[in-house]
C-alpha cells in the first residue's frame, strides 16, 4: 500500500463484506499523533477469530488462506512508533483503530481520502457512511445521509454524484488539513 487512504479503503471493504448498515470513519490529529478509526455495525467476529485476526494466516476470504489487509494497516502504524487496536463483538460490529506519528520518516502519506470514500459509496450505496476529520481541533464532517436527503430517492451511486462526493471530500480535507498531515 502506498497511501493510508488505501488501507482505509481495504479495511472498510471488510466492513461492507460484514454486512454493515453503517460505517463511521474518523481521522483525528492531536499534536503529532493521527488516529484513524473505522467502525461498523456489521456481523462482528468471534473471540477466536478476533484473537488471530492480525495474523496474516487468518482471513475471511475463500480464494486463499492468507489475508494481509489488517496486518498491513497494523504494520503501517507500528512502523511510525504508533499502535493498533481492534474491538469486535459478534452480532454487534467491529472497530479498528490505528495511531500514527506523522513526524516519523516511516509515516505513509494520507493520500486521497475522497477517492476512498467515493469507491466505498459506489460499492455499497445502501450503507450509511460518515467521515469525521479533526485536524488539531479544526473539524469537518461528511455523511451520506445528508446527500441522500438532497437527492430524494435518486441513486447516490450515479457517476456524477460519486464524482461530487470524491471532490467534495478531498477539498474539505485539503482545506482543513492545510498540508499538516503529509
Amino acid at each position: 500500500m502506498r497511501e493510508l487512504s488505501l488501507n482505509v479503503l481495504d479495511i472498510a471493504e471488510n466492513s461492507i463484506a460484514a454486512g454493515a448498515a453503517r460505517i463511521d470513519i474518523s481521522l483525528t490529529l492531536n499534536e503529532n499523533l493521527l488516529e484513524i478509526s473505522i467502525k461498523d455495525n456489521g456481523c462482528g467476529m468471534s473471540g477466536d477469530f478476533l484473537a488471530r485476526v492480525a495474523d496474516p494466516f487468518t482471513t475471511s476470504r475463500t480464494t486463499r488462506r492468507v489475508g494481509v489487509g489488517i496486518p498491513f494497516f497494523k504494520m503501517a502504524a507500528e512502523m511510525t512508533g504508533g499502535g493498533f487496536r481492534i474491538e469486535s463483538k459478534e452480532g454487534e460490529g467491529t472497530e479498528i483503530a490505528a495511531v500514527f506519528d506523522i513526524e516519523s520518516v516511516d509515516f505513509m502519506p494520507m493520500g486521497d481520502i475522497g477517492d476512498t470514500l467515493g469507491a466505498l459509496v459506489m460499492h455499497a450505496p445502501d450503507t450509511e457512511f460518515t467521515l469525521r476529520i479533526d485536524v488539531r481541533g479544526n473539524v469537518c464532517e461528511f455523511c451520506t445521509a445528508e446527500i441522500k436527503e438532497i437527492l430524494d430517492g435518486l441513486p447516490i451511486d450515479a457517476p456524477e454524484v460519486i464524482s461530487f462526493i470524491k471532490s467534495t471530500v478531498k477539498e474539505n480535507f485539503d482545506s482543513i488539513n492545510g498540508g499538516i498531515i503529509p
Binding site: 500500500m1 488505501l6 479503503l9 481495504d10 471493504e13 476470504r61 489475508g67 494481509v68 476512498t116 460499492h123
Partner: peptide, 11 residues
C-alpha cells in the same frame, strides 16, 4: 477490490 487489487492499483 480486495487487498491484492487495492495494493496493485485498483482504485
Amino acid at each position: 477490490m480486495a487487498t491484492c487489487g487495492i495494493a496493485a492499483g485498483a482504485r
